[in-house]
């Protein structure tokens, strides 16, 4: 190494030194420790005892683990496509030359920055089976037939759809992104299509969609990663749905036992930190796979010349 190289290296390390410490203490060590604990019987109060693959073996046989995974996939499988569709639809509508566009954009975006605890409280109230806004609205259509809206969060078959509906309210983030993506589609493409006499729908399918597909795919996968980590709203709402103040079981009837809730209660309620670490690692692998997919979609978009 020449002196100049050495000097540059020192400067580089000096500038990134905070991150070197941060990476080591707040990421690298936890990732390694988590892996170690996942092979241990560990409760934080007692010293970890090595138990090999036992945690992973138990995980494979743990009905609740699978249930939490199924619940999470159900939620993600519903909220991500619906959220993407709604956001894309709204973005397309906004992209028509309509008046008041920035006001609409503002209105759609606002819910997405509402603190999740506050929006959980609000939706808890909206989904109240008797006095809630949702059933008040639905009953306008249902009561002529002698029907009544469901009990939502108190009903195991409606609690997850309720959370999905709530997630749609927060989809404004994606609206903004997709709108920006739509605005980046070169106008010449549309003009060419128009000259060819393509209908608006065909233009959307053949011009718009291919042009913004990478953005949509990337953001949908990011949303999927987020949905896999669903915690706060489900935790708060299930605590309230039960009434006896214990959220660790995903009430009612474990219908909202999501992956991160099970992980949290295993670790910090049952103090089974080793088992929780094994769960954490499985989540880590799932997320890594999804991220890799996202990277495939966005490959080349942020690779710039050195």
């Amino acid at each position: 190494m020449t002196r100049a190289e050495g000097k540059r290296l020192r400067a580089g390390v000096a500038f990134t030194s905070l991150w070197i410490v941060g990476l080591a203490v707040f990421t690298a060590y936890p990732v390694a420790a988590s892996l170690f604990y996942s092979f241990c019987d560990y409760s934080i109060l007692k010293a970890p005892v090595w138990c090999g693959l036992e945690n992973y073996r138990q995980l494979a046989q743990d009905e609740l683990f699978w249930k939490s995974l199924r619940n999470t996939l159900f939620y993600a499988g519903l909220s991500v496509p619906l959220g993407t569709a709604v956001a894309l639809g709204l973005a397309v509508l906004l992209n028509c030359e309509v008046g008041g566009r920035s006001l609409f954009r503002l209105l759609f975006f606002m819910p997405s920055i509402v603190p999740v605890v506050a929006s959980a409280m609000l939706w808890l109230w909206i989904f109240n089976g008797k006095y809630g806004l949702m059933n008040g609205f639905l009953d306008l259509f249902l009561s002529p037939f002698g029907l009544h809206g469901p009990a939502w969060l108190a009903d195991p078959s409606w609690s997850k759809p309720a959370l999905v509906i709530m997630s749609l309210w927060g989809t404004g983030n994606a609206v903004v992104i997709y709108l920006a993506g739509l605005q980046n589609v070169p106008a010449e493409l549309y003009e060419a299509a128009e000259i060819d006499g393509a209908s608006a729908w065909r233009r959307f399918i053949h011009v718009t969609l291919p042009a913004i597909a990478p953005v949509v795919a990337f953001n949908a996968i990011m949303a999927l990663i987020g949905a896999m980590q669903l915690f706060a709203q489900a935790y708060i709402m299930s605590e309230a749905a039960n009434g006896n103040g214990n959220a660790s079981d995903g009430n009612p009837a474990r219908s909202t036992l999501f992956y991160t809730i099970y992980l949290f209660s295993t670790a910090f309620q049952d103090l089974r930190m080793g088992y929780a670490s094994a769960m954490a690692y499985v989540l880590f692998l799932i997320t890594a796979a999804l991220t890799w997919m996202a990277a495939q979609f966005s490959r080349g978009r942020y690779e710039d010349s050195p």
């Binding site: 203490v25 936890p30 949290f264 910090f268 690692y281």
Partner: peptide
């Protein structure tokens, strides 16, 4: 190489780090 590693850490979900971070 370090920057690539930095990007890679983005995929580590917070819930996966909860337990050891608590220990830290």
């Amino acid at each position: 190489a370090f920057f690539a590693l930095t990007l890679a850490t983005m995929m580590v979900p917070f819930p996966a780090l909860m337990v050891p971070l608590y220990g830290v």
